[in-house]
Design a binder for these strands. Structure first.
Lengths: 213, 213
DNA sequence: AATTGACACGAACATCTGTTCGCACGTATA
DNA sequence: TATACGTGCGAACAGATGTTCGTGTCAATT
């Protein structure tokens, strides 16, 4: 069982890997045959079986492109690519997602599920400008990742737009009695109280990170 | 362009997504047809084209399972899985990498190259314990990602072990004259000066992030 | 009422693709 | 030398799969 892979099997394995990286779907037997200049599909089939026996791949019979790389799936499937759609600053509203065009020029970041939690939809990133969120230990240049939502649970940290003040801020949100309490992450600081009508929830804070160039 | 997806198209899109997550290769048109109970493959083809036009997927003509999810593919080879090998606190040294066993039980996080920069070797993560790094805007519970190195350039933020004080700290490092200046990120605070012999560089700070569970 | 456009249907077609089989070649073993 | 075994070859088969086309439905528009 500890038998070494043949030259050809090694070549096939790394071919499959790079093919998947490149196309995001596995190759057919004939793809492998052609690109590795193997004379017959049956040779490919034979060596694929060998690779399966040694647990490098898994094959799904009678299914086209039914090759799976063992031990690879966890890495590739759960990564989320998050677009950085603008910036967040005290004095300006958060960009409206519908107005933002996300194309291949948009800066993005890739994050795994450990960082993001389970719900992976509606995520977007904003670059922090200014020191206005320093009380939440968020610095100029940091990147905050938000999940777009217009309501939230008590105690969640959310990005809110204060209509009257014309101001964006990141605070813990508490709805109590008839008013809203916005609590800075820094417990030394005093909360803000305001009318519910004045508060527009823009999204929930999912993660913050700071690249040290 | 802002046209909404039809019910069927939404269903198809999310079916494709979960199929890929589950199998690690895309579905065929007939897979979609069968599982979504659509009467004809041409209907699937039609709606797949609609999805392509709106840039949710990319189709590769004439090849089986030639569906790619837009914004999902780049998720492949450039992701780095970083082990979280321990914790970092003021009063204890950083775990020595050689002593740490990284196995499948080790907690890890996956991050893309935008977050990590180009050099992707020798990275490891530590969970921050305590508030001792609050002056660097790093909170209890944050995760810091370091690159293991024992030297650094002036001005880089590094994790250092102070031999005499028996203390770990994250500071900007400056070698000047015959001494070392360790500058807190918070410019309000005073630097520490010490002998070069007293300073052991543990690694360079690459990124910090804070999951809001 | 007529027209148009989006969407759906069903069947047929042409490849694409995995599988199988008989045969051959070399090396190690008996 | 004979045998077994791992590996390679080429061809053929059968089913899987993407594509196309004529037709139909329905709601909005003219």
């Amino acid at each position: 069982m500890a038998k070494k892979l043949s030259k050809r099997q090694e070549a096939m394995l790394s071919y499959v890997e790079s093919f998947i990286d490149q196309h995001s779907y596995p190759p057919t037997i004939r793809d492998i045959q052609r690109d590795l200049e193997i004379s017959s599909t049956s040779v490919v089939d034979y060596n694929l079986n060998a690779l399966e026996q040694r647990n490098f791949i898994r094959r799904n019979r009678n299914i086209s492109r039914g090759i799976e790389l063992v031990g690879r799936e966890p890495v590739s499937s759960n990564i989320v690519r998050i677009p950085i759609v603008g910036q967040i600053a005290a004095g300006e509203p958060i960009p409206v997602l519908e107005d933002v065009t996300v194309d291949e020029n948009t800066e993005t970041i890739e994050l795994g599920p450990e960082v993001l939690g389970s719900r992976r939809e509606d995520l977007f990133g904003l670059r922090v400008r200014g020191m206005s969120m320093i009380d939440a230990l968020i610095n100029d240049g940091d990147i905050v990742v938000l999940r777009h939502q217009e309501t939230c649970e008590n105690g969640e940290t959310v990005a809110v737009w204060l209509r009257d003040e014309k101001e964006t801020t990141l605070k813990k949100f508490y709805f109590e009695d008839d008013r809203v309490r916005l609590q800075p992450a820094n417990s030394q600081m005093d909360p803000i109280f305001c009318e519910p009508e004045n508060v527009e929830i823009q999204g929930k804070l999912v993660t913050v990170f700071r690249p040290y160039a």
